[in-house]
Simulated scan of single mutants.
Amino acid sequence: MSMQADAAWPDRRALDLLGIAVPILQAPMAGSNDAALAIAVAQAGGLGAIPCATLDPERIRAEVARFRAAAAAPLNLNFFAHAPPRADAEALARWRKRLARYYAELGVDAGDAGGGGRAPFDATLCALVEELRPEVVSFHFGLPGPALLARVRRSGAKVLASATTVAEARWLAERGCDAVVAQGAEAGGHRGCFLDLDVATQPGLFALLPQVADAVAVPVIAAGGIAAARGIAAAFALGAAGVQIGTAYLRTPEATTAPLHRAALREARDDATALTNLFTGRPARGLLNRLMRELGPMGEDVPPFPLAAAALAPLRARAEAAGAADFQPLWAGQAAALAQERPAGVLTREWAAQALHWLARGPGRA
């Protein structure tokens, strides 16, 4: 992307804040991306991201080193900011009982229903940020406590976080976020909600985005249902300074998307996703599969995030070995059908160039 084209973006705040050439942020997608996707997007001028919530410190170090060796560009490290759940043996027992017929069908043992494999940001991870000094640190499910957040800011990182409502966006801006990611209901993966967990009332992106842009002074990054240049241009028209794209990268060769997940994405339709809490205990959008259809996508007896995942692990492993995605979370947004099996860098460059074309046309121009 030339500097001439770069200068044509109608809002440069995200470009200047993050030190990138095109205002496209790759969404951090735990389980579906590592440094390879981040490198491809960064080399194309966008902001690459590494999802850290499911990685131990040594793996995070290795992924950052891999990125630094390949790309002289900013990097976003993403963390979860949820409160660790209180152990509740009764809730876990009820969840295992709900799944009992599947254990019997597949001939597996419920095993240990503790854990969940998703660690919240803590002092150990904060020290890692201070050591690795990423240019950007982003959070999902709110922000860490003030002391940890202050340390992140002192490390030199710009701080981003997701908001699903105007109230959440204001809360984040008041606490010093450098930019807010406005996550519409269309978005794949976990909802970033933290003030109000009632997903039934959370707005779609085109309703949320202009209201957030009016409510906060910091740059707003649009996320949810954006999978092509037209969506990028529309987001800018509604007040975005950048976009965050996830699902549209899931079929790229650089993504680590599991084979069964890729196969499901190839068959995706506009009405193929739903919000579900069955897989982790928090609402997340994914492609419908057997578990979601038979139990209903939202359950009242699901243990709190992230504990629900452990009881599903043996079912998922047995089903995957048999070639079925019945118990596997197939995270995807509502625009999953637009995802392409093409290199991530090529897509990023094309989206940026085509979005600039759409923006240059202006309203009503052919």
Rank of each mutant, 00 (worst) to 15 (best):
C177F: 07
V212D: 05
A217T: 14
R191P: 09
F206D: 01
A215H: 08
V180L: 12
G189Q: 06
C193A: 15
A169W: 14
G204W: 11
A169M: 15
P210C: 08
A213T: 03
P210F: 11
A213I: 05
T201D: 12
E174N: 10
V218Q: 04
P219I: 01
L208C: 07
A187Y: 13
P203S: 12
F206Y: 05
A182I: 13
W171Y: 14
V180C: 14
C193Q: 11
A182H: 08
G192M: 04
W171M: 00
H190Y: 00
R170Y: 05
G184W: 03
L208I: 13
T201C: 14
L208F: 11
I221D: 02
Q211C: 06
A217R: 15
Q202F: 11
A185G: 06
I221E: 05
I221W: 06
L172G: 12
D178A: 13
L195S: 05
F194P: 02
A207E: 06
E186Q: 10
T201F: 07
R170C: 12
P210S: 10
E174I: 09
F206S: 01
P203Y: 08
D198W: 07
I221R: 03
G188C: 09
R191N: 12
A222Y: 01
A182Y: 10
I221F: 02
L195R: 03
D196R: 05
P203N: 10
G192H: 02
W171R: 00
A207W: 03
D178R: 02
A200E: 15
A217C: 02
V212Q: 03
L195K: 03
